[in-house]
Amino acid sequence: MSSPTPRRSPLGAIESVQHPPQEAQLFERPFLTQINLRLDPADSEALAAIQLVLGVQLPLTPNTTAAGQELLAAWLGPDEWLLLTEHHQPDALVTNLQAALTGHFASVVDTSAGQTVIRLSGPSALDVLARGCALDLHPSAFPPGACAQTLLARAQALLIAVDAAPTFDIIVRRSFAPYVAAWLQDSAHQFDLHFPTSDTA
């Protein structure tokens, strides 16, 4: 259900307050619906049922994502996915998924408020991330559609390669978000990227 209470993101965004223009190269994408989904990948019936609800097939290849019209599914583990969308409210999506999975061994858990998404985009994105991420994010090794859970500086993060700009979505736990934002801003500083603050309204 949608609550009249405005939500607050860990980086200061307030729901229904105007957000900074998204052509920025470093900004928060607050209030996305984020659902953690666990099920047995051998349960093909469950997979099919999920596909009906999501409009996208869950990626079974490690460290990849599958993007549908309204939703992105990211591989987190052999029986674990993160569903990311701005088109569905968490409660409704959880309810639909649970209904579709009735009778199957599965778990659907809303984690929307527990993590946030930071988007980093532009030619220097790789240089910024290379300051704190040990993964090879060169497009030959980490093309658009790839994802990886790893360490970004000293925080755990899920990285998603969005496009060839390149653009990355960086998903971090809520309590780590201020640290990660400060760290990204510090690394981006030498490339003249700045974090637009949301509480300017």
């Binding site: 460290n63 052999p78 040990a134």
Partner: peptide, 11 residues
């Protein structure tokens, strides 16, 4: 076995 080679501080 799932994610490929990663540095030891992830483990």
């Amino acid at each position: 076995p799932w994610c490929g080679p990663r540095e030891d501080d992830e483990f």
